[in-house]
Amino acid sequence: MDSVRKKLLSEADALRPAAVRMLRAITGYSELPLREVRTSETLASFLGERGFRVRRGVAGMETAFRAEFPFGRGKPSVALLCEMDALPGLGHACGHNVVGVASACAAAALASAGAGRVRAGRIVVLGTPAEETGYGKARMVGEGVFRGIDAAMMVHPSSRRHVDKGTLALHKIRFTYFGKASHAAAYPEHGINALNGVLMLFQGIAALRQHLPDTVRVHGIVTEGGKVPNIIPERAQAWFYVRGEDDSELADAVRRVRECARGAAKATACRLRMEEGPYTLSAMRVNPVLAASYRKALSLLGLPESGDPPNRNRGSSDIGNVSRVVPALQPNVPISSGARVEIHTRSFAEATTSPSGIAGMMEGVRALALTAYDLFADPSLAVKAWKAHRT
Score class of each variant (00 low, 15 high):
1 M>F: 09
3 S>W: 07
3 S>Y: 05
10 S>R: 09
11 E>W: 02
12 A>K: 10
15 L>N: 06
26 I>H: 03
37 V>K: 04
38 R>L: 00
45 S>N: 02
47 L>V: 06
49 E>K: 11
59 A>I: 07
64 A>Q: 11
65 F>R: 14
71 F>P: 14
83 E>K: 15
83 E>F: 09
84 M>A: 07
87 L>I: 13
95 G>E: 03
96 H>E: 03
97 N>Q: 07
100 G>Y: 04
101 V>W: 04
103 S>D: 01
110 L>D: 00
112 S>L: 02
113 A>S: 07
128 T>D: 00
133 T>G: 05
134 G>S: 02
134 G>L: 01
136 G>L: 01
137 K>F: 00
146 F>H: 05
147 R>Y: 01
149 I>M: 00
151 A>P: 09
159 S>G: 12
168 L>S: 08
169 A>G: 10
170 L>N: 13
170 L>W: 05
174 R>T: 14
184 A>E: 04
186 A>L: 14
188 P>R: 12
191 G>M: 08
199 L>G: 11
205 I>Q: 05
213 P>H: 04
218 V>E: 01
225 G>N: 03
226 G>H: 02
232 I>F: 02
233 P>Q: 03
235 R>C: 08
237 Q>Y: 03
244 G>Y: 00
260 C>V: 10
270 C>I: 12
275 E>R: 15
275 E>T: 14
277 G>Y: 06
280 T>C: 10
280 T>K: 12
293 S>E: 13
300 L>N: 14
306 S>K: 15
309 P>L: 15
315 G>H: 12
317 S>E: 08
339 A>E: 15
347 S>K: 13
347 S>W: 08
378 D>S: 13
379 P>C: 04
379 P>R: 06
382 A>Y: 05
384 K>M: 06
385 A>S: 11
